[in-house]
């Protein structure tokens, strides 16, 4: 039976790079041919969440939110705008980082919707963070002699966003790959401003858990960490701060391997796309090796 994938992202009225990750990951998945149709949809751009399902032919649609955390957008806005019958915040039965999928009917179109948890709280996101560290250092074996900081908003914006940061930091710590792993926040302790104070090792990779590059990842965080006084003047890779070398990675959502997490979400919901996952992994692995 034909099926479709819809990638739901935030988008922006002001910043054209906001939707770039959704487009790029959608294209990577299109190339695999895993779904008959792949569509991007946005809160701030078109097609809007309200109308996207009508542009899709398939009877069964996998919807994957390209968001970091479970919360307002993924549990309230998207289900409301897609008109998912019977949705409630218990549908995922999640503790904040353990959403899987809910099977619902779209009142607007009658399609069966596999409404998946967001990419940001999926286990495979930990691998994307590590992959991001490999990409930014250009070293497929990066780990020993390096610290890793996973960065996000604090709890002020969304409690689950902080949970997702801690969750992945814990998982990566458990991999025993980096000498030190630390979760850091923009608006609460432990704060990103003091990044070098949290690490003994001299090299620190900093990976913000954001979907798209924009104000926070391109202006705020680099300035807060002291990479530069004025983001417009740029900074080195790595940049020397307080005797440490900081490898600042920019938004993790731009990492090609994130397409893999989108696919993993659909597998949880019953899609048979194992072959596509292999393809995406091979391609992103090759991309890093070729950069060497």
């Amino acid at each position: 039976m034909p099926d479709a994938l819809v990638i739901a992202a935030h988008g922006s009225h002001l910043n054209p790079s906001s939707s770039a990750p959704a487009f790029d990951h959608a294209d990577r998945i299109r190339e695999t041919g895993a779904f008959d149709e792949v569509r991007e949809t946005f809160w701030k751009e078109e097609p809007a969440f309200r109308e996207v399902l009508r542009t899709v032919d398939a009877e069964e649609v996998y919807v994957v939110p390209l968001f970091i955390s479970e919360g307002y957008f993924t549990e309230e806005i998207i289900p409301r705008e897609l008109r998912l019958d019977g949705w409630n915040t218990d549908s995922w039965d999640s503790d904040g980082t353990s959403a899987t999928t809910a099977t619902l009917t779209a009142a607007d179109t009658g399609q069966t919707i596999q409404y998946c948890g967001p990419v940001g709280s999926h286990d495979a996101m930990s691998d994307v963070i590590v992959q991001r560290a490999k990409s930014v250092t250009g070293d497929p074996d990066v780990g020993e002699g390096f610290g890793l900081a996973v960065v996000g908003h604090g709890t002020k914006r969304n409690e689950n966003s902080a949970k997702a940061i801690e969750y992945h930091a814990d998982r990566i710590r458990g991999m025993d790959r980096f000498d030190e792993v630390q979760a850091l926040f923009m608006d609460e302790d432990p704060e990103i401003d003091d990044v070098t104070g949290f690490f003994d090792v001299s090299d620190i990779v900093v990976v913000p858990l954001f979907i798209a590059d924009g104000y926070h990842t391109q202006e705020d965080i680099p300035e807060d960490m002291g990479l530069t006084d004025d983001y417009r003047e740029g900074y080195e890779l790595p940049e020397r701060v307080d005797g440490h070398d900081i490898w600042y990675a920019g938004a993790v959502g731009t990492e090609p391997l994130l397409a893999d997490v989108v696919l993993e979400r659909t597998v949880e919901a019953g899609a048979d796309v194992r072959g596509a996952i292999e393809q995406v992994r091979n391609r992103t692995r090759m991309a890093v090796e070729m950069d060497d």
Binding site: E46, P47, A48, E51, V52, R54, T55
Partner: peptide
């Protein structure tokens, strides 16, 4: 046409 003017075809048809 869907990329230029998303969802216009389906709404026109409705």
């Amino acid at each position: 046409v869907g990329f230029f003017y998303p969802a216009t075809i389906t709404n026109w048809h409705r």
